[in-house]
Amino acid sequence: KEYCRTLFAYEGTNEDELTFKEGEIIHLISKETGEAGWWRGELNGKEGVFPDNFAVQINEL
């Protein structure tokens, strides 16, 4: 499994977007979303897309 840590808080504006606080760990599902600048991940049981410049991939939890 791949993970990323959020660098900033983000408020999702669409139903398919994740909302998160700074410093949260998102399970990274895919970097290929069909839309440049967006990754797909899962946080707190919800799957959605989020801007990749708001997070950095990490090697271990």
Rank of each mutant, 00 (worst) to 15 (best):
T6G: 05
E42G: 07
E35Y: 15
G37L: 01
T13N: 12
G12S: 11
F20K: 03
K1H: 05
G12N: 03
D16W: 10
G48H: 02
E42T: 10
A36F: 10
I29F: 03
G37K: 07
R40M: 10
K46V: 13
T13D: 10
I29Q: 05
L7E: 06
G37C: 04
G45L: 01
A55D: 03
E47H: 10
E60K: 15
N44Y: 07
G23A: 02
L61Y: 15
G34N: 06
N59R: 09
K46S: 07
A36N: 10
K46R: 14
E47C: 12
F8S: 13
E60I: 06
P51N: 04
N44C: 08
F50T: 02
L18D: 02
I25Q: 09
N44L: 08
Y10C: 03
E17F: 05
N14Y: 07
V56T: 15
H27E: 15
L43I: 14
K21V: 11
N44K: 14
N44P: 00
G41D: 04
T19C: 08
F50N: 01
L7C: 07
I25E: 06
K1D: 07
T19V: 03
G23K: 03
E15M: 09
E24S: 06
P51A: 06
I29W: 00
K1I: 09
R5F: 05
T6S: 12
L28W: 01
I29S: 06
W38N: 01
G37V: 03
G23D: 14
K46P: 00
L18Y: 05
G37Q: 06
I25Y: 11
K21T: 12
G12D: 01
K31A: 03
E11G: 07
E11T: 09
S30D: 10
L43T: 05
V49P: 02
E22I: 07
C4W: 08
R40V: 05
K31T: 13
E2S: 11
K46H: 15
T6H: 03
E11R: 09
G45S: 07
T6Y: 03
G37E: 07
E2A: 13
V49D: 06
E17S: 09
G23V: 00
N59Y: 07
E17G: 04
L7T: 14
I58Y: 09
G12A: 15
F50H: 02
E32D: 14
K21A: 13
L28Q: 00
E24L: 04
E47R: 13
E15I: 08
A55T: 11
N14R: 12
A36K: 14
L18F: 03
G12F: 03
E2G: 12
N59V: 07
T19L: 01
E22Y: 00
K46T: 08
W39I: 01
G23C: 06
K21I: 08
F50G: 00
N53L: 11
E42I: 13
E35P: 09
T19P: 06
R40D: 04
H27F: 09
L18T: 05
T19G: 06
E47F: 10
E2D: 15
D16Q: 12
F20E: 00
K21Q: 11
R5S: 05
N14I: 10
N53I: 10
G12Q: 05
E35M: 13
E47A: 09
E24Y: 02
N14D: 12
N44G: 13
E17H: 12
K1G: 09
E17I: 00
D52M: 15
E24C: 06
L18N: 02
N44I: 01
F8R: 15
E42W: 08
F54Y: 15
G34Q: 10
A9W: 06
A36T: 13
A36E: 11
D52E: 15
L18E: 04
I26L: 09
I29T: 09
N14Q: 14
D16C: 11
N53F: 11
T13I: 10
D52S: 15
E32T: 11
G34V: 07
G37I: 04
V56N: 07
F50L: 03
N44Q: 05
N14G: 12
T6I: 05
E47Y: 10
E32L: 05
G23M: 00
L18A: 05
E42Y: 04
T6M: 06
C4K: 03
D16M: 10
T6V: 01
E22M: 05
D16S: 14
G34L: 05
L7N: 09
L28T: 06
E24P: 03
